[in-house]
Design a protein around this nucleic acid. Structure first.
Lengths: 278, 278
DNA sequence: TTGCATGTAAAGATCCTGTAACCGAGCACA
DNA sequence: TGTGCTCGGTTACAGGATCTTTACATGCAA
């Protein structure tokens, strides 16, 4: 590792792995303009956000269930009870970033919306990029105060990962992972696909991996060692020769079925890779 | 930490942690439009806000010293280095609500401003009332979760924390904590997770920690010393190497698992002891 | 088999933390 | 006004923990 690179890392003081902790942003948009939604969807998809488009208002309870980070509404879609709806949503979900994005309005309307709890008011037509920035700003502010651990514990195989404690456990016994080991383990468990070394390095270290760097291999070895000690009958990290590593808890011997984690919402349904090692 | 900032801080002798509860909102506006300022001043005065009008940019350290809740800037007043200035302010004071209120702009400019950390962008001319709502919305987000400030006494291990007295006790003997020490202890006890130094610093001091600042370590040492003196058989503050500190009362020696964090909540609800000193 | 890619282990190199000593600014008090 | 005290904050150092590098062994694919 070059000195400059290392300095750059410690200088930023916040490792990429830690800020990546909260996975994808969840956003709901209540709007009926197909063009608007299309543009937004494209942009958000590129950013890796989880977007759900709603063509009409849903109940507040339904919103609660969606566990959103942000909500964008066009008041004209809500119809008559829009102000009350806005108020109820903001009252019920104080941690939700609410952005009103609607057609031309009066100052009084905007004032009313903001007073009721909205975080921002955008006037249509507007540029998707700007709207996204506004959403990001609102979420950013909410996040900063959201100290409480909204990071769920995650159980995979016999191992439990506790992001709030920066540690993994087998039962109640700590694996005694170092910070970097934990970050790599956490990264691996967050995806079912094969991760290339360069990818792992970049996301954990925060900058490009130098050619021939074996750090990832060494850490994977340490991880495997500790995982084996804590949970001898399971295999967790699998090597894909010439490609990289993949995380999948498997009971050794015979069975090689994927054991779906039980605790916490792991919603990793999308990219399950059936192709498997030998 | 720069000397100016230090002076500013110690001079005012009031830290953000103590200030937050109930005080007038402090707002600074960097603008040169007399009419705009006049209208704003009248409105804010009626609301009981503490406004300081600045006709040109002040140093970031000076802003730190003002202990503001919000900052409104007209980029045209800042001149050439405005983006860098904006960025520096937002980085240094993550808890500050920053609103850019300036003349006509392009989407790209607004996007840039928001990405650099601004909370909102208002285009002049604008209605004072609306601007105030936007400021309030930004501050509201910041304030929401700031220190639940439970006034109840809290017993952890052999220690009792009395927010009303700004002091901690072992039985009826005071630990003789200083203000800073108490604030850090209180922050630590309010969370079961590992807190990174940057988080601790930001929440107690009120602005971003400088790289290489060891203040948190030093105060943790002082805290540990006093905790050890008052309660020799217990460990309270645990170091997570490469990450930060975590508060958890544990009996030394034999049983180290007094409070075994299960997979879910670590509930410290059980041991709140209201019974207290004279 | 050969040529890489990966596993393994150990040795520095580097970083992180605990610790103590120090300095300057406020404050109380004579 | 000067003195001594406390407090917050800085700095330097030492020891230990962690990370990186390197070398070699092993395994996979062509």
């Amino acid at each position: 590792m070059s000195l400059e690179a290392r300095d750059a890392l410690t200088a930023t003081a916040a490792s990429p792995a830690s800020q990546r902790a909260h996975s994808r942003l969840r956003l709901a948009v209540v709007d009926r303009d197909p063009g608007f939604m299309q543009v937004l969807a494209n942009r958000l998809d590129a950013l890796g956000w989880d977007l759900r488009a709603l063509s009409s208002a849903v109940t507040v309870d339904a919103l609660v269930g969606m566990r959103l980070n942000a909500l964008v509404v066009d008041l004209s879609v809500l119809g008559p009870g829009s102000w009350e709806y806005l108020e109820r949503v903001c009252a019920r979900l104080p941690g939700l970033a609410v952005i009103v994005c609607t057609g031309p309005s009066s100052v009084a309307q905007r004032v009313r919306g903001l007073r009721l709890g909205a975080d921002a008011w955008m006037t249509k037509p507007c540029h998707a990029e700007e709207l996204i920035c506004v959403i990001e700003a609102a979420i950013r502010r909410h996040r900063r105060n959201e100290m409480p651990q909204m990071e769920d514990a995650l159980s995979v195989g016999q191992i439990t990962i506790r992001p709030d404690l920066y540690q993994a456990y087998s039962g109640d016994a700590s694996l005694e992972l170092t910070a970097r080991e934990f970050e790599i383990l956490q990264l691996l468990t967050q995806s079912d696909r094969v991760l290339r070394r360069e990818e792992i390095y970049e996301r954990v270290w925060g900058y490009a991996m130098a050619h021939g760097d074996r750090s990832v291999d060494v850490f994977v070895r340490k991880l495997r060692q500790k995982l084996r000690t804590a949970s001898p009958d399971w295999s967790y990290i699998h090597t894909h020769f010439g490609v990289g590593y993949r995380f999948a808890p498997e009971v050794d011997g015979g069975e090689q079925q994927l054991v779906t984690p039980g605790v916490g919402e792991v919603g990793r349904e999308s990219d399950v890779t059936p192709a498997l090692v030998g």
